[in-house]
């Protein structure tokens, strides 16, 4: 395997790990709110979170490019802070990936919180646990299977993205050149052997991830 492919694999794993961590941080409060609220905003917010499921990645990438570009509202702020524009940088890739994979993290966690239900939290309150305390000591542990699913899906989905990366990050070796883009490069250059190694690797990886996911569910179910 050539060095640029190895660099792409490393970059991809870094990106996916960081994005997964951020997704769990951002997704948990959103999932919690969606699972508890009776607000009329529940529908619209849920729909916005789910948008990346149905939108072509290019659409998402296009608007992120506009927003984060030097003349976009986010770009102006980042520029004035001295961070420069985000597109075509690793940071830009991270931000875009968080949006892109958000539904894959929010939905399993939301389902898990809904499955936990109101009762364990009422019991916790009757045992003097404050709402925060009950969230961390009861809701989180009981929703654990949902978090594992969310982390696996978020990680795998980030590794598999292509369109958004091309739109927002381009193809800069060592900076934004991730695995899926590298496969594209190999194919464009007619290096089918190199492409095969990476592509077959992705197939095996994805299969193992899904096996872990489905095998785990059969083995233990949503343990409650």
């Amino acid at each position: 395997m050539d060095t640029s492919s190895l660099a792409a694999i490393r970059l991809t794993l870094e990106l996916a790990s960081l994005v997964t961590a951020l997704l769990l941080l951002v997704g948990t409060p959103i999932a919690w709110w969606l699972s508890r609220t009776r607000s009329r905003w529940k529908g619209p917010v849920g729909a916005v979170v789910a948008l990346p499921l149905v939108l072509p990645p290019t659409v998402l990438g296009f608007y992120l490019l506009l927003f984060m570009g030097p003349h976009g509202p986010v770009g102006k702020i980042t520029s004035s802070l001295g961070w420069g524009a985000l597109p075509f940088s690793f940071t830009g890739l991270v931000v875009a990936s968080v949006f892109y994979s958000l539904p894959f993290v929010v939905q399993p966690i939301q389902n898990a919180f809904e499955a936990v239900g109101e009762r364990p939290l009422e019991v916790a309150a009757s045992l003097r646990a404050s709402p925060w305390d009950a969230f961390f000591s009861v809701a989180l542990p009981l929703a654990r299977p949902g978090f594992v699913t969310a982390a696996i899906l978020g990680f795998a989905h980030t590794i598999g993205e292509f369109g958004v990366v091309l739109m927002i990050g381009g193809n800069i070796p060592g900076k934004t050149q991730v695995l899926s883009v590298q496969i594209y490069n190999h194919v464009e250059a007619m290096e089918y052997g190199q492409a095969h190694i990476l592509a077959a690797g992705m197939v095996v990886f994805s299969f193992l991830v899904l096996l872990a996911l489905y095998g785990r569910r059969q083995y233990k179910g949503w343990s409650r």
Binding site: R119, P120, E122, A124, S126, L127, R128, A129, S130, R144
Partner: peptide
């Protein structure tokens, strides 16, 4: 709020925390 009221509550269905042992359930409160 409920967690500030010195009360004990027993529900109709078993409401033990499934992720804690019996002892840990008792210690929770």
């Amino acid at each position: 709020p409920t967690h500030k009221r010195p009360l004990g509550l027993v529900f109709q269905e078993a409401s033990l925390f499934p992720h804690l042992s019996v002892r840990k359930n008792l210690e929770y409160g």
